[in-house]
Amino acid sequence: MDFLTKWWMYLLGVFVMVFVISQSVFFLVKSSKRAKEIGISTQQIKKTITSSMVFSVAPAIAILFGVVSLKTSLGVVIPWIRLSVLGALTYEVPAAEVTLNTFGESLGTMVSNPQILITALWVMTLGCIPPLIIIPLFLKKIQSGVVKIQKKDTKWGEIFMSAMFLGMISAFIGVVVAPKKDVVSGEMFVSAVPILTMLSSAVLMIVCGLIINKYKQEWLKNYAIPISMAGSMALAILFTTIGVR
């Protein structure tokens, strides 16, 4: 997997970063200019910029956790690029895992051959591409109200979206509890470490939720998933060390 640390991989990452920043600067300049024309003061514009930047620091650090999580299997550059563009941790991790899974591998160790990595990268890239096609084609019509998803039943719409995520979550819960084959003896056994890790993460998430709601610690919302993941992953080391299988 030598290519992952080649100079041209880093160049690709820099190219993506420069593109994203260029687009942002372009729109920042154009919209700031227009803002002044329509009566928004320079002071208000500056305040909007600084507040937004400050507001984004904590979530950006939380996003880094996604780079750390995926680094072991995919190297640094690929998660860096993927998390800089469309696609969050909750998309990139399942997309990568589902692909590795088809090859009989899993996140956690470096993939065994480049084709697995390339297949995963193509899935991660194309798996969330629709907005980049829909928006250039239809945004003008959407904004002018010509095309819209019927908002007759927003409650069902929300339930539908939640049901989709629950479907994905249930499949992965099934994978976690499924008996595994011992590599040495070949016997099937229920591996407690993944189950305990999942339960630990759930408990940590509940604790975070209670702190957020009871003590009004809104800042914790950005960190709840990374904290739950990091804490439970650390506990996985403990469980393994004390001999849990």
Binding site: S106, G108, V175, M198, S228, I237
Partner: peptide, 21 residues
């Protein structure tokens, strides 16, 4: 650290599971 990185999926879906369930 292998047990940690080998349990990313249970770690993610434990947390996400709580949110959605």
């Amino acid at each position: 650290l292998t047990p940690a990185f080998g349990n990313i999926i249970p770690a993610l879906f434990g947390a996400l599971g709580v949110v959605y369930i």
